[in-house]
């Protein structure tokens, strides 16, 4: 029963959510109740995240594993900022100061560093090794120039070609990928619904 019960619950829950949406029949009260449960479950998930983080990093500190100092910093930051947020609210002076002067610059810096990796990777990998690579290279350069005002200054035709690339071949490919992924999603859902996919029970699948 340890496996059958979760499978039955999964089947009924998926059916209650899936049928009204797809077959356009009246929603049931059960759907609204599941929504409320979802709210509670999300709160529990956040709590579980905090507990798990504390256990993992607490263990690192207790056993003095490599990099345990970083675990101390992680735990102190987690609880100090959490308590500060509860005490001051998100609009508190100190809470906002830390957000503005620590969190925001760090986040922006990490994102900004990507430009260097992208530039370096583009330089090393964008080689005209084949006709396909040449097409990719030319399309990439045109789109890059299209998104910057400089492109139109170099030649007025660049934005028009770039727009065509984005509007026609790009959109066609995106739709094809989207449709494929959606069909895959349906297939995965039916497998879960029928109990063929059991990864969420902690097993290794069918």
């Amino acid at each position: 029963m340890r496996k059958e019960l979760p499978l039955i619950i999964t089947f009924i829950t998926a059916l209650v959510c899936f049928v009204p949406t797809v077959f356009k029949v009246t929603e049931t009260d059960v759907r609204a109740i599941i929504d409320k449960w979802f709210v509670v479950m999300e709160s529990v998930m956040i709590l579980m995240g905090v507990v798990n983080l504390t256990r993992v990093h607490g263990s690192n500190v207790r056993r003095r594993r490599v990099g345990w100092i970083a675990s101390v910093v992680c735990l102190v930051t987690l609880y100090a900022y959490l308590l500060l947020g509860i005490y001051e609210t998100a609009q508190g002076e100190t809470f906002s100061w830390i957000y503005d002067n620590v969190l925001q610059p760090i986040s922006t810096t990490i994102s900004s560093l990507l430009v260097f990796y992208i530039a370096s990777a583009a330089y090393r990998s964008f080689r005209v090794r084949s006709r396909e690579a040449a097409v990719l290279l030319v399309a990439g350069v045109i789109v890059m120039l299209t998104t910057a005002p400089l492109g139109a200054m170099i030649w007025s035709g660049i934005p028009q070609i770039g727009k065509w690339i984005m509007d026609i071949p790009n959109t066609a490919a995106r739709r094809a990928i989207g449709l494929g992924a959606s069909l895959g999603g349906y297939a995965a859902m039916i497998r879960v619904l029928l109990g063929l996919e059991r990864g969420h029970l902690g097993g290794s699948g069918a």
Binding site: V115, I118, A119, A122, Y123, F126, L137, V141, M144, L145, T147, A148, L150
Partner: peptide
Amino acid sequence: TGHLAIILFI
């Protein structure tokens, strides 16, 4: 200018 620099390196 950033895009131009990357294109020049490519």
